[in-house]
Computed example of a mutant assay.
Amino acid sequence: MEQQTEQLFTWLDTTTNMIVEKEDVPYLEALIAASELLFYRDLPEDLDEDYEKRLTEQLNQAQLNEYPLEARRKAMQLAILKGMKGSTQQHHYITPDTIGMFMGYLLQRFMGDTNKFSVFDPACGSANLLISVINQLENKQIKAYGSEVDPTLIRLAYSNTNLQEREIEYFHQDSLKPILLEPVDTVVSDLPVGFYPDDDTASAYDLKAEEGHSFAHHLFIEQSLKYTKEGGYLFFVVPSSLFESEQKDQLQQFLKQHAHIVGLLQLPETMFKHEQMRKSIFVLQKKGENTRDPRKVLLADLPSFKDVQAMDSILMQINQWFENER
């Protein structure tokens, strides 16, 4: 599959650069056009003859159905990463594949025999995490939703979804404002970290700061719980220092009231340049009539994903935890 990923990335990159050169648009804008060209196989009208000829030649070199879904996702991911290189914006960031795979594994374990469920990512970005998780749940019927405020990222999410030939419903909006969405069974998200600038919107939240701006990641946790069914599970990528901030007491009180803390899995240190940038996977269950706190919270310090033996040992511990909990 690596060869197919590389082949498709090369096609996307070459076509994107042609569009950049001719139309003088940013790389990511041109990437959206290139991926739409591959999906719809339809050239815009009124192109000059030479440009039309070059794009037609490019189109004749690639057929989407020749590539497996994961090759399409990874090729698109590589192209997006290339387009984002040098971007200083915090939210222009793609969740690494290893995290997506591990979150997909956890989702599978927690959902067990449930074959039909809904999943929502309130900070979906270009939808790489959401699609990565869905691709691992092959035998399940999943209704997926994503929300994203950034106009370029939401268009990349649409392009990504088209190339996957999947159905995902997207909301292009600030996800901390009301969303026209029925509560879902699960939430999966790599939460935006930092301060949320809109104090008016934040004022409606229990987790608003007493003074100054509120933490966006805290508000996202509250909003996600609001849009989750009772008993539903939530899987977040959060800063490992989540319970060390000045607003930790407020967050703990809120969670005690509305959710069960099910697990906290520290991601491998090797994934992060500095210890203070380290992240964890945080698993919650929304409280409901028949829910209870786990006998024991699932805690683990994950080894490098490349260390197969250490990883097998952790997975055995996680499986043991499930046996004791069920």
Rank of each mutant, 00 (worst) to 15 (best):
L251Y: 10
R278W: 06
K177I: 14
L251S: 14
P122S: 11
K140R: 13
I99W: 04
L78W: 15
I318L: 05
I154R: 01
I179M: 10
R73E: 11
T98H: 07
L31S: 00
E70M: 14
E2Y: 14
F102G: 06
E66T: 14
E148K: 02
S304G: 01
L181I: 05
P26Y: 08
Q63I: 15
Y51S: 09
F236C: 02
K256V: 10
T291D: 03
T270D: 12
Y227K: 06
F117V: 08
I261A: 04
L302W: 03
D174H: 01
V297P: 02
R41E: 11
Q164L: 11
E2F: 12
T56V: 12
Y67N: 06
G263Y: 00
E57F: 13
H217R: 07
T14A: 11
V188T: 13
N135Y: 07
M103T: 12
E210G: 11
A204T: 09
E21C: 08
Q58K: 08
M311R: 03
T88D: 15
R72E: 03
Q252R: 15
Q320E: 07
H217G: 02
D190Y: 10
F110G: 06
N17S: 13
S203A: 12
G104R: 02
Y196N: 03
I281D: 00
V20A: 04
D121E: 15
F117K: 01
Q320K: 07
E23S: 07
Y27C: 05
S175M: 09
M277P: 10
K22M: 11
W321D: 01
F236G: 09
Q173W: 05
R278Y: 04
E275A: 13
Q4R: 15
F120N: 07
G112A: 09
S241G: 13
L28C: 01
E182Q: 15
V238L: 07
P268K: 11
P44Y: 02
D198E: 11
Y145S: 00
S313F: 02
Q7Y: 12
K229S: 01
H260Y: 12
K116C: 14
E182D: 14
L267T: 06
P197H: 09
I261P: 10
Q276L: 11
R295M: 05
K82C: 03
